[in-house]
Design a protein around this nucleic acid. Structure first.
Lengths: 217, 217
DNA sequence: TGCCGTATTGACAGCATCTGCCAGTTCCTC
DNA sequence: GAGGAACTGGCAGATGCTGTCAATACGGCA
């Protein structure tokens, strides 16, 4: 069974080329989106913790067992979607150990785009941002997802020549500091200024330099 | 009812001055340490997920209800202790926005000391490190604790003159990157080299400078 | 020392989350 | 169109976690 992340990635890639989904896959993807939308409706209406999975399943027309098969946990509603599936994998060519500010900015920009969403992928995920920020359990789950991405990024940085300790610290600072920290401030400020500005400001805070620099590996 | 963190802080402060604990507080603190030790024994023996709270409680001589009163959750065994209670509160005088590398290093050094453990506080917490690193749910809980500390640190940095975005990114990078990242690499390397070396190496990775500099606010 | 008010604990009931299992159904492939 | 695989739903059950309340142990005071 394809994971939600794989399904979404395939769906997104349809913008760029023909990656056809089977009927089964399309049905499941529809159900997934329906469940997520329904859940957000219920959350907005009565609050996150006062909505049970049983209710979400009933309102979405699936059995509770299916909900768990799809999302694993209640928090999976937030980590299964593109928001957390930042797709660090595509960074390998973007790392320049000689230009850390530039590298960081490019990485975060790529993360922000999501997994291949070049053609205006829907941003349903932003709807759940409120609960990511406000519900500790959801926040913890998202941190777990960021952690996995940071682990992948660590490997890439090591392959690019960084020492293990340096790679680990840079990767975590990128994901939790530059990315999530900027995201949170952006959210707190009412999402008025562009997210990119926050990222850039945060990166310069770390490096003490102005984030210019180009260079492509 | 005093929180575990408050109790431990009081206990630690006995090294510096007379902060007597009542019999009730001592009994509870004993029970807390007994439960934690017993739990680690069981975890080492059969693995984290295969040990139920009921078993921990029975082996520790308390009721399950008491376990929950003490720790809240199973993961609370790891976040209630000094490892996570890093005590960012004492940093206010340590921040120098003109010397970020030095500030970071001092902050992490203070965190590493724990809450007032100047007189050789016990480090029972290191015993649970393995599960912090290996069990996703424990890791997520510790991240939650780090998150709270990062929030406190953000406030301090803002008070010191940093912009909201910069303060947030620096605080998160400090806690998740410089601190936890270094801790993880140190653990992965068998805890041979001093932790401080990893922290210093990671900080220079972020700032691109050698971490020297003094200055006290 | 002995008593009383309060803090703390244990026991019970109950809800929600999450998993294993298996039968029935739908869809893909040949 | 037939066989096989993928998928769903329902059931039972374990575990995590919380509210409640009576019973007990402690601390303060006479």
């Amino acid at each position: 069974m394809l994971s939600i992340r794989q399904l979404v990635t395939n769906e997104r890639q349809q913008y760029a080329g023909p990656v056809p989904l089977t009927l089964r896959q399309r049905n499941r993807l529809d159900a997934i989106h329906r469940i997520m939308d329904t859940a957000m409706d219920l959350f907005d209406e009565r609050g996150y913790s006062d909505v049970t999975i049983e209710e979400i399943a009933a309102a979405s027309g699936v059995s509770p067992r299916t909900f768990y098969r799809y999302f694993g946990t209640k928090e999976g509603l937030f980590t299964a979607d593109p928001f957390a599936a930042v797709g660090v994998d595509r960074f390998s060519g973007q790392i320049d150990t000689g230009d850390l500010p530039g590298t960081l900015e490019r990485l975060v920009a790529l993360i922000d785009e999501g997994p291949g969403a070049s053609g205006g992928g829907r941003r349903t995920s932003w709807r759940g941002m409120r609960y990511v920020m406000e519900e500790p359990s959801v926040r913890a789950a998202v941190y777990g997802a960021l952690d996995e991405e940071a682990e992948r990024l660590t490997v890439l940085l090591r392959d690019a020549g960084e020492s293990p300790a340096r790679a680990r610290v840079i990767a975590r600072s990128c994901m939790f500091g530059a990315y999530f920290g900027a995201l949170e401030q952006w959210h707190l400020d009412g999402r008025s200024r562009p997210l990119r500005d926050y990222v850039r400001e945060g990166i310069t805070a770390l490096t003490g330099q102005t984030a210019g620099g180009r260079a492509q590996a």
